[in-house]
Design a protein around this nucleic acid. Structure first.
Lengths: 218, 218
DNA sequence: GCACCCAGGATTGTTCAACAATCATAATTG
DNA sequence: CAATTATGATTGTTGAACAATCCTGGGTGC
């Protein structure tokens, strides 16, 4: 009996490729996803492609306007503000409610995110840095213990990740946060929930400001 | 120019009818939704029906198992525990972070939920009572100010609503909570966030216990 | 009798082709 | 030049077809 009971669905494969293209910036925000073109490029049927579209819309990476097609999600400054409102609500609550000694696998997962981000920074792979940093904050929310909440938060982080994509110089943008991520994790590791919460609050405030400064209008 | 720029999509109509049938208990939890049957009963094509299925799955009202079809979501005791974990996280945070004097339209909306629930109780329309009570708690989360979060929480509440559907005697189950809902709203109205939070915490704890007691196993 | 294997039907997964509905653009007319 | 109408492009919806997979039941050998 093989390890893969189900060969991955064609729909999921198509959605994965589209998601990767969006995240890599090949499909730019606001760009229209024309069914006929994508059908040819992905080699899937129109129905399957439309199903993939729905998946991306659910994840907040695309938008569907009736009779106007699907466009790549264009994250606005207001969207960023809302995303950080959600981050504050969930991440701070997760840290505040975390047990003094958190489960070893959770701590290990968080430390893995930090080291992975550090390794990526050493290799100047800034996009990967952002991925692992956001993964860490997903792990933080995971402390609440709700898979449903985790799934929702993952889509929120994906939208934030999307706003990174528009920034050409990711180096200076991503670098400063790695050390602060590490500090938060270590405070959690020693049971200093209050200190972690304070550091995280500052982290989110400054990160939001830094990100908003990159938006042209307002 | 008519008020409806877009006649509602066939897909959405089908999803609405299925959602109503699930909520009304006509389609019972665990029941399989056979494509061929529903195609005939709803008078839509199979592709359209499948898209409606996806919508319901996204809302957590149905589950999709590859090659095994779609079934009505069967909410378990663990699901209820998770739902209340989410409710505590979001509702308590919303109340705690609420401004001393909350925006008049928000307060009006919350009071409308309470009076609507009271009216429904007077008419012995217990199902409607539950609907408005849950709507109130959606309004509470709305104080956070994030439409994204509101949408997520609405689907969580819908799943909770689904677990009500299995209970035959909704009268005794719904009645006691109306007064407590009203008390929470009035504490918020006078700016007593702390008191509202305490009342809400107790409310959620007891509501969860009362609901879990109705589950057979454990 | 029992465990195993195997064919058959039923259901879902995916694709294709066609037509209707709607939108955006360009050409036409006054 | 403005308003209106035609035109093309794109999406919305349907129906049918075939492949892949699962479930059920019956046979086979021990």
């Amino acid at each position: 009996m093989p390890a893969l009971p189900h060969p991955p669905a064609v729909t999921d494969r198509a959605a994965d490729r589209l998601r990767a293209a969006i995240m890599a910036g090949e499909l730019k925000p606001g760009e229209q996803l024309v069914e006929a073109d994508l059908v040819e490029r992905l080699g899937v049927s129109r129905n399957t492609l439309r199903e993939a579209f729905r998946q991306l819309c659910r994840e907040g990476l695309a938008e569907h306007h009736r009779h106007c097609g699907v466009t790549v999600r264009a994250v606005t400054a207001d969207d960023v503000r809302e995303i950080f409102t959600i981050r504050r609500t969930l991440e701070l609550q997760a840290v505040a409610a975390a047990p003094a000694i958190l489960p070893p696998p959770r701590l290990a997962a968080m430390r893995d995110c930090v080291t992975a981000a550090q390794d990526a920074a050493a290799a100047r792979a800034w996009r990967t840095v952002g991925t692992h940093s956001l993964r860490l904050h997903g792990e933080i929310v995971r402390l609440i213990g709700s898979p449903l909440l985790d799934g929702f938060f993952a889509s929120v982080l994906a939208q934030l990740r999307l706003s990174f994509a528009v920034n050409p110089d990711e180096a200076a943008f991503q670098a400063p946060w790695i050390a602060r991520d590490a500090a938060i994790v270590e405070r959690l590791a020693v049971g200093d929930a209050g200190g972690a919460a304070d550091a995280l609050r500052l982290y989110l405030d400054e990160s939001e400001q830094g990100l908003l400064a990159r938006f042209p209008s307002r």
